[in-house]
């Protein structure tokens, strides 16, 4: 295995483009090292991107949007006071991944590019409308998070492309987000079901919403039917029931060691309701 520590994304991209065999980028390493250790994936080329300038920065832009370096860890996100105020659901989703120790290393980009449909930060990012800046040999492009995973362990990134920044929209007024997942323990599990909800209110009425489901299909889903179920409502019981039904209907899960089809389908609806209530309360300015 070759190990590289480039100092720019252009260099990282070039290294990946000319590499043969399996190439992996190393950010937090919490997935790459597990796969390496268990002989699941032994990269021929491993490119550590943490020596690149700025990858550890959290920046609030003038328009209220946020740019996060790709090596920003979950712990750094949780410790950032303003980011959590704007996007509590997203920060909490990231914080749910692994232990305190894993939080010291794990990154949003890594969680996304690992390609797991159960990745906790991904439904929250999709709901929030997060995009990734991707650097390739021909320059950079901006890609919506939901367009990156294409199946378990697979992404739409081309050879030589590397995620170079995380872009989180401006929170704006009267908005709130939330992410909930189901795990059998209290910590240290992979989501059996995950639900991210992001919405905006006009008065008591929901005017915008994005609802995303994790671990219920080969990729994280952005479910328009869920959003439609609550847009225009005040999140009354009827809207919540419609939301739950839409969430369950969108599920296309598998039976596996973590859960059953029936369970995931049912609990997706339960969590969608609970997450929507939290997001709604946050949009109302209630401190949750």
């Amino acid at each position: 295995m070759e190990f590289h520590s480039p100092t720019s994304f252009a260099e990282a991209s070039a290294l990946a483009a000319k590499a043969t065999g399996i190439t992996r980028f190393l950010a937090g390493g919490t997935d790459v090292l597990v796969q390496l250790r268990s002989d699941l994936v032994t990269p021929d080329t491993l490119i550590d991107i943490k020596k690149i300038d700025g990858v550890g920065k959290i920046t609030c832009n003038a328009d209220g949007s946020w740019t996060l370096g790709v090596a920003v860890t979950g712990a750094e996100m949780s410790e950032h006071p303003e980011l959590g105020r704007d996007w509590p659901g997203l920060v909490e989703a990231m914080d749910l991944i692994g232990s305190t120790q894993v939080q010291g290393r794990a990154t949003l980009a890594g969680n996304l590019c690992n390609g797991s449909p159960a990745a906790d930060s991904v439904p929250a990012m999709v709901a929030a409308g997060v995009t990734m800046t991707v650097t390739g040999e021909d320059g950079t492009r901006e890609v919506a998070v939901e367009d990156i995973p294409t199946g378990p362990g697979k992404t739409s990134l081309a050879k030589g492309e590397v995620v170079s920044a995380v872009n989180i929209p401006a929170r704006g007024d009267n908005g709130g987000d939330a992410y909930l997942r189901f795990i059998p323990r209290t910590e240290m599990d992979i989501a059996v079901v995950g639900v991210g909800v992001n919405l905006r209110l006009d008065g008591d009425t929901i005017t915008e919403a994005r609802v995303s489901l994790g671990a219920v299909a080969p990729t994280v889903l952005l479910v328009d039917a869920c959003a439609e179920a609550i847009i225009g409502s005040t999140l009354d019981d009827a809207a919540l029931d419609a939301l739950a039904a839409a969430a369950s209907a969108a599920c296309n899960p598998i039976d596996d060691k973590r859960g059953t089809i029936t369970f995931r389908t049912e609990v997706a609806g339960v969590l969608a309701k609970r997450a929507a209530k939290i997001a709604y309360a946050r949009a109302k300015g209630e401190d949750l």
């Binding site: 190990f3 190393l26 390493g29 090292l33 597990v34 491993l46 894993v102 010291g104």
Partner: peptide
């Protein structure tokens, strides 16, 4: 705080 099994010696 990190797990030293999840970090390469090179890092």
């Amino acid at each position: 705080l990190v797990c030293s099994c999840l970090m390469l010696g090179a890092e």
